[in-house]
Design a protein around this nucleic acid. Structure first.
Lengths: 254, 254
DNA sequence: CGGCCAATTGACTGGCGTCAATAGGGGTGG
DNA sequence: CCACCCCTATTGACGCCAGTCAATTGGCCG
């Protein structure tokens, strides 16, 4: 919960953007050489953070812009009395902090869910992206719109679905995103969320989250061993949700 | 609920962007002459739609980009079984459909809550804004980020707050936005939402929405007469919510 | 070994959903 | 001008899903 986010390394054996092993994956649109060079030029750091580290905090006025290079993170808001809502989860390749970098003060926090590596872009240079490289600015906007679309789906889920439906939808949504990144093997993927993360994301109490989780597991939706979650019938299970039906096409990456 | 959205007028006595009575309001950042001229050049229509008209529908692939010129609208998603979640409300000056115009297919619908007028920009020209007028593209992105921030707050509300807290937060949030647009007089403003809109926005059943509404009214939070809602003590009531504390600064408008 | 924390389970409670009946306004056709 | 319908709003009764309280287990660490 609390931050211990001391960078664990910086600028050391950093893969250059040109040789980035992430951006060449099939999930992502491939960039023109000049775009990659431009991005390299606005990249100011490459950081490793431990699980639990705070990447952006609510109210921060100088939030930087990141691409999540490896690991998982999540965006959340906390009410004054401590209740916390997880707004959405981020996987490798996702843009972090675009919203925060545009607003004068961040309206949300961002926390590393696992150990993560991030590519850091200067907030100051955000504007220069628009001025100098409209193609990339357009991709930034696209990624922002995609994140909003994820939040939309979470809101619909929390507002309209029952606890079981919600949890199923969340699990399947994460499964699909992991699958698109090539992180799924034998219908299973590393699932780093604790019960507390689930409950804060779903708007359920911790106890009821655990009971719902147990129900879905016993009902044969999935198995969970060694931090890996295996969907027992991805197709059928997927039928219970809907918004996730849409194809995952290639998307931009900074 | 259903669309009857025949345009009621088009290109008739349309105020030019240069002489736009909305954009000169104090709520909005004033644009340079060349920006206004550019926006005028990408504006392709000015439409009036009746309350209930569908402006964008889920799955639409050629959604255009709008600025809401007058009236209220809302963005929503519907599950296959008919359950509907209202994602956020739009007031004059808000950008409509930026997300939809970037994605290949709209992930949400948009409906006129009252009779509305919209300024229509060509979807095809969205990209040209990035290429030709980066200042305006940046404002587009800013407005997109602001919308996400509204959805974030709604998700936090629906996920974490009780029915009473939720409804109070929604009412106060709308009050503040109306106030910022100069629509509040004597602590009261036109409140066009039906109970059904409230229930779909808050993720509550219709019956419970009505009971919660009655409770707040009887408890002295507000009065409601002639379609106008009067907050009985804006300051105190506002204390019950939090995210809405932030100042409303001037913002861009297309 | 003792402390701490995530996870789990059972018992009980309550907030919110569902069902059902009624009232009232506006439109429309006899 | 009234009968009739439809839709929104309202209220009461009842039931269930999910929250709260509380006790227990097991892993990790100092």
């Amino acid at each position: 919960m609390v931050t211990d986010g001391s960078p664990r390394s910086t600028q050391r054996s950093v893969p250059s953007c040109q040789a980035c092993p992430l951006r060449t994956q099939s999930a992502f649109l491939q960039k023109a050489q000049r775009e990659v060079e431009f991005i390299q030029s606005v990249k100011v750091d490459h950081r490793s953070l431990s699980a639990g580290a705070e990447i952006i905090y609510m109210g921060q006025e100088d939030a930087e812009l990141f691409t999540l290079f490896s690991g998982w993170a999540f965006r959340h808001q906390t009410l004054p009395d401590g209740r916390r809502q997880i707004l959405n989860f981020l996987l490798p390749g996702d843009l972090v902090g675009f919203q925060a970098s545009l607003m004068t003060a961040a309206q949300h926090s961002m926390e590393a869910l696992t150990n993560v590596e991030v590519c850091v872009f200067s907030r100051r240079k955000a504007w220069s992206i628009f001025a100098q490289m409209p193609e990339v600015a357009y991709q930034l906007a696209w990624l922002g719109a995609r994140e909003e679309s994820l939040v939309d789906e979470n809101l619909t889920s929390v507002g309209q679905r029952s606890a079981r439906e919600r949890m199923a939808a969340l699990i399947i949504g994460l499964y699909r995103r992991a699958e698109h990144l090539g992180l799924v093997e034998n219908n299973s993927f590393v699932f780093p969320l604790t019960r507390t993360h689930l409950s804060d994301a779903l708007g359920l109490s911790l106890v009821h989250t655990i009971k719902t989780w147990s129900y879905l597991r016993r009902a044969g939706y999935f198995r969970f061993e060694n931090q890996r979650l295996e969907l027992l019938n991805p197709r059928i299970t997927a039928g219970t949700t809907d918004a996730y039906q849409r194809e995952w096409r290639q998307r931009p990456i900074l």
